[in-house]
Design a protein around this nucleic acid. Sequence first.
DNA 1: TGTGTAAATTTGGAATATCATGGGTAAGGA
DNA 2: TCCTTACCCATGATATTCCAAATTTACACA
Lengths: 171, 171
Amino acid sequence: MFVSTYESAIDAKGRVSIPAPFRAALGGGTRIFLWPALDGTGCLEGGGEALMAMYRATLTRLAPQSEVRKALVTRIIAGSADLKMDETGRIKLPEELCKAADLTDRIKFAGNIDSFQIWNPEKHAAYNTAMATAAAAPETLAAFGRAYSEVLHQQGAGAYPAPILVDGSEG
Amino acid sequence: MFVSTYESAIDAKGRVSIPAPFRAALGGGTRIFLWPALDGTGCLEGGGEALMAMYRATLTRLAPQSEVRKALVTRIIAGSADLKMDETGRIKLPEELCKAADLTDRIKFAGNIDSFQIWNPEKHAAYNTAMATAAAAPETLAAFGRAYSEVLHQQGAGAYPAPILVDGSEG
DNA sequence: TGTGTAAATTTGGAATATCATGGGTAAGGA
DNA sequence: TCCTTACCCATGATATTCCAAATTTACACA
């Protein structure tokens, strides 16, 4: 799992060190896929062969020739760079992707569970601030609580009660 | 798997270098099949022997003499060029296919999972733009998220809960 | 708790290999 | 004979690998 955030530098040749904990999360593989995030946040999304295998399985589940599938295949499959880490854990960021995500000298690697993101540091700071506000909203916390209760119930297999939450605001 | 997009040039003899990563995806085979894409986007679709074997199996599953089968056999089997890569990984694009896809001096190879596409660069740029817009649509992202959750559930074999997504917008 | 040592990681640069492309030559068909 | 095709080699550009220094991190010991 890709967790935490790390900063790294782009050298004169466009090379970047993948943070060691992320290399571990790649499970020893040296192949890395990178593409501009679908949601238009302006960052890059990336992962290893395991993630791409999951995406392949996901995309081939969508109806062939459907607009949705074609759009996603174009963005994720055709739109991704197929990179290989060198011995010291570096990749060369393609010029095109650097331009797409506005990456120049320093970048941020942000964990995203099964994938990771690559950010321009300033954009990442702004995104972080926005997300912090959103996370603090009562609806967000409530949704998290509901989902957590469901998982707890499912995994506990009876050890925990069903998620009929008692609303603290009542009574 | 055919991933990423590469640009290549058509030389004076009508030859084109297959990008090295695509040659790897062909699994060492030197035979390449090429035909105009069925969906009318104006690009060529291609693959190696593995893809053609899959298509053969698929087409022979369809009722013989059915209009559907005849149409597909005509387009994919009769309509495809059967090419052989030379020692340096090049093929000669047939005149007919170049005309069909409007290919002149430079072309784009776009990965398409089990096959690849060959595009006129300008047409590819336009297609890319359209697909980027479609991919960013909330319905598309939602469809992808649902499909991904299903794959996650299936592959996780119980480690993950069933994909009954909790809508964060509720409550 | 502080310090020294060892290990791992990041960084810079040079050597090497691979790849895309151009051109030449001979064989085969029209 | 002329044209196309298949096969061969050459080369510049690019990417990859290798080596080594600098920095950070982890660990043991005082």
